[in-house]
Design a protein around this nucleic acid. Sequence first.
RNA 1: GCGGAUAUAGCUCAGGGGUUAGAGCGCCUCACUGUGGCUGAGGAGGUCGUGGGUUCAAGACCCAUUAUCCGCCCCA
Length: 421
Amino acid sequence: MITQAPRGTYDATPNENATFRSDVLHRLEDHFFAVMARYGYGEVRTPMFEHTELFSRTSGDTSEVVNKQMYSFTDKGDRSVTLKPEGTAPAVRAYLDAKLGAQGGVTRLCYQTAIFRYERPQKGRYRQAHQFGLELFGSGQPDADAEIIEATIEFYRAIGLRDTVVLLNCIGRAESRARFREALATYLAPWLPDQSEEIKMLADRNPLRLFDQKDPKVNEFMAGAPVVTDHLEDASRAHFDTLQALLTEAGVGYELRPEIVRGLDYYTDTVFEVHSTLLGAQGALCGGGRYDNLVKEVGGPATPGVGVGMGVERAYIVLEAQGDLPPMPGLNAFVVAATEDAWPTVRTLCRALRKAGLSVQYDVEGKNLKGQMKQADRMRAQWAVILGTDELAAGQATIKNLATGEQRQVPQSDIAATVGA
RNA sequence: GCGGAUAUAGCUCAGGGGUUAGAGCGCCUCACUGUGGCUGAGGAGGUCGUGGGUUCAAGACCCAUUAUCCGCCCCA
């Protein structure tokens, strides 16, 4: 079936029952960049693909994303390249390549990008998905973490999402995490031999995930397990405490969740997700956190950073589940020829109205008056502007409000003002 | 990568081996020849996801395949 989009991808189209309406996606983008402009974030656009090493080095080779989800291929120059599975590592690379941090201080970047992961698709999970992202380089202060989270919430408010919750955790630095893993391993040791292969593998590969299992028996056992936040260094502890105070001050509600650990290995200290109950199994709207070793890892000077990646489709799905998708956009006016002699004037008037900034169409199918009126209705035009022999003679036009049905005659020169109001 | 469900008109769905496959909505025409929406009357539109098979006969049953959805896993 050559007409269907590849598995896990979709076409966004401007029609009412599209899976994703392109006009809505466009609105989300507008809101995102408008909000981020108010926070002073500048847009960075990075390539669709990167050297594979950028991701394998930074995301960690035990991570699921790098392990089996990357769209990697060898190009004709025998280089291994990968369609980007996430936005942060490329943003870091671009930040370094363009020497944005050369003057010191803080650099704030935002982006909108497609991401690719070879996964089994379901609702809210695609092989090509899209993310809005923020990265803040050059500050290790909790104020930076707070700003990222606050800006994220601000975006969700701007597009009208309700009932979202910020899930917050602090996973510490390498040393404290090692200490914690040790404590956890000690706790798991007597219990593990009786568990399923799956649990054993998880305990070996990514033990923090054990905090986030569906099995109630596992949860019961894990309730008594040591918690990451009990093993934090003083600096991490203080950072986390201050961040919470800042969020409270900002009026951003949050829940502490020791099971939030994130799938990418580069995070240090702060990690967070925003969830919505309306998303089903794919509960996360966005995920982010602090990555104080990442810039150095990519080859730059040691530079702290914090960022977030927000799922565009997931925001859309929640908006739709709320019943809050905006109505399909319509024209300001549809200009109608009531008599054959009016066509030249119809065309000139359309040009004038468009020049005045209005969205305007006229019939290009050779329809009669009734057909044109019908078309005006179908295009959700606010006004029908009707021109016929009578109007031409008087230098006027009949304008009809298609919502109320009222109509009146106005001078042709006044139409832009009336229709645009 | 694992388990389960689904695929029939533009959309939402009914039909469960046997004449020309149905409904609602949408679309087209007419009533309404300078006026959309409402109403009424007509009408068009489907190789029943695709490829095989069983059968005298398949949209229905079987196998494969593709896609979507749900759960697991993972996460955006």
